[in-house]
Amino acid sequence: MTAVQADLQIDRPTVADGAALWRIARDSEVLDLNSSYSYLLWCRDFAATSAVARDESGEPVGFLTGYVRPDRPDTLLVWQVAVDSAYRGRGLAAALLDGLTARFTAERGLTTVETTISPGNTASERLFTAFAERRGAAVRREVLFDTGLFPDGPHDPEVLYRIGPLSPTPSA
């Protein structure tokens, strides 16, 4: 467990956190909300590649979900990052991202982070651009999934941000 601030801790999610992660994602009003079942599975099957921030009582107040790409074992794809509205503006999303990628760089030789961001999601754009700067890495962008690929109605395109190669340690 890593301390972010005196009242917050970051560690791996557990299945018991799945419902809270679903609520945080729902309340973000920005993320595509997955089924509650998928958050439970994510906390079981991808806990090692995800992180949760907890308040002083141990309740989740933010999370980052990710997975290692099967065809690129040096690449972490960040699926979702969300922070409860009461905890926004405290650098928690950056702490989740920095902590998880630092651990993966040390344990698995992580060289690249990928994520997709819908156009206009400036908070995510800033988060990942600043992360790239801290890690001394380039950011390459390309449309991964165009609007027409989504079968469930209007959906913005998903732009792939490929960040790398990562320097071994963040710069100050």
Rank of each mutant, 00 (worst) to 15 (best):
D7W: 06
I10T: 08
D11V: 00
V15R: 02
G18Y: 05
G18P: 12
A19F: 02
W22V: 01
R26Q: 14
D27K: 07
E29S: 06
E29W: 01
L31G: 05
S35D: 09
S36A: 13
S38C: 03
Y39T: 00
D45N: 11
A47Q: 13
V52L: 12
A53I: 05
S57Y: 07
G58L: 09
G66C: 12
V68D: 04
R69T: 11
R72E: 13
T75V: 14
L77S: 09
L77A: 11
V78A: 00
V78H: 03
V81C: 08
A82D: 03
V83F: 13
A86T: 14
G89W: 11
A94M: 15
L97E: 04
G99A: 13
L100A: 04
G109T: 04
L110W: 03
T111M: 14
S118I: 08
P119Y: 12
G120H: 02
G120E: 03
A123G: 08
E125L: 12
F128K: 01
F131I: 09
A132R: 04
A132G: 08
E133N: 02
V139K: 01
R140Q: 15
E142D: 14
E142Y: 09
L144G: 04
T147Q: 15
L149P: 01
F150P: 04
D152G: 01
E158C: 03
R162V: 11
I163T: 03
L166V: 12
S167N: 02
T169I: 06
